[in-house]
């Protein structure tokens, strides 16, 4: 006979395991990617072992008078190397978060003109080791990685948003590049250099200048009491209006009696952030954030996707006469929302 404790345990498990979860078919795509990455690592180990053996032979040969020493000044990469100056240190999540980058050097269809951008980096700060999400423009395919203290990036292929294949070879190659990236360092020039597991330089990320006039930052901070609903007016990385403003309000904001703000994005990939602001409108404490499901559904509105991206890179909030402004760490507007209620 079951005890009361066993009955309660069974009920608790039933209740929690009935909660909505990610689609296993989407997860299978991630599992396939992990399997491919694992296969690549196994091959690389064999390659490295072979290369190590070859290196031993190459260094030994000159000493027995039968050949020349290898040219140690030869660049490791066949890619054109950018100028390096200043100190180099491992890139951190803070270095990457909220930044927009142009990938250099050219990856296929010519360098981007000034003002273009290839990458936007958000972050999930609810992890003890933070995760960054690289969102590739304009297809918004996402690649995630954990950034470790020494600048190593652990890829997290949990979800891949489709669409890059339809956009262009360049975007698809950036996705591939990020998947091969093993380490990121920040150079004195402010450039982030990505390298693979062998130390070969893959690409340099240069800060992208704003593509359009920055969203003005006014000085209002106070949140309206109670709950309010907001709809996207514009996003920094969009040069045209959002594709969809239909459906329920995109963002709800609830002001708690304790001064906390709870921001929830509606849609299939629900994200909730609970935060407290200081008197300047910067996030003093960020208590939680999470996505209930991966944002992979084609039906996901660009509005919800844009707000989700902004919440990932959120550092500050301003309630202005123009609406609600979400800011990145450089005090740049990420998205502007207007009241929907």
């Amino acid at each position: 006979m079951s005890t009361d404790l066993e009955t309660r345990l069974r009920a608790s498990l039933d209740a929690h395991l009935a909660e909505p979860m990610a689609s296993s078919e989407v997860l299978l795509a991630g599992a396939r990617e992990r399997e491919r990455a694992s296969t690549r690592r196994r091959r690389l180990r064999w390659t490295v072992a072979g290369a190590a053996a070859a290196a031993v032979v190459a260094f030994a040969v000159p000493y027995v008078g039968r050949g020349a020493r290898p040219d140690v000044n030869q660049p490791a990469s066949s890619l054109p190397a950018p100028t390096v100056s200043g100190p180099v240190r491992p890139a951190t999540v803070a270095d990457l978060t909220g930044a927009e980058y142009v990938v250099w050097p050219d990856l296929g269809d010519g360098p981007r003109p000034s003002g273009g951008k290839d990458l936007f980096v958000g972050s999930a700060t609810s992890w003890t080791v933070s995760k960054v999400d690289w969102t590739i423009f304009p297809c918004r395919e996402s690649v995630s990685a954990h950034v470790l203290a020494d600048g190593r990036l652990e890829q997290v292929p949990t979800a891949v948003r489709g669409g890059c294949a339809q956009v262009g070879e360049r975007e698809a190659r950036i996705v591939q590049l990020l998947r091969e990236t093993h380490r990121a360092v920040l150079e004195g020039t402010g450039h982030v250099v990505l390298s693979d597991r062998t130390g070969q330089r893959l690409a340099v990320l240069a800060d992208a200048p704003p593509e359009r006039t920055p969203i003005p930052v006014a000085d209002g901070v106070a949140a309206p009491p109670g709950s309010s609903s907001w709809r996207l007016a514009t996003a920094r990385w969009w040069s045209s209006p959002p594709e969809s403003t239909a459906g329920p309000a995109a963002l709800s904001v609830i002001t708690g009696e304790d001064g906390s703000l709870t921001l929830s994005v509606a849609g299939t990939c629900t994200r909730t952030v609970v935060t407290r602001l200081d008197d300047q409108g910067w996030i003093a404490t960020r208590e939680s954030s999470g996505v209930s499901e991966p944002c992979v559904e084609a039906a996901e509105t660009s509005e919800a996707t844009a707000i989700n991206s902004a919440l990932q890179a959120l550092y500050g909030i301003r309630f202005t006469p123009d609406g609600l402004l979400l800011l990145d760490r450089r005090e740049r507007g990420l998205v502007l929302l207007v009241r929907a209620d």
Binding site: A22, G30, T158
Partner: peptide, 30 residues
């Protein structure tokens, strides 16, 4: 897949670790 994801959730206690466990397991399955 969904049933195994629920098992992973039960084992790990949170959705993120459950998805990781599921995908690592299925990488082995593949």
């Amino acid at each position: 897949g969904d049933r195994l994801l629920r098992l992973a959730y039960g084992l790990t206690g949170n959705a993120s670790d459950a998805e990781d466990l599921w995908q690592d397991t299925f990488a082995d399955v593949i």
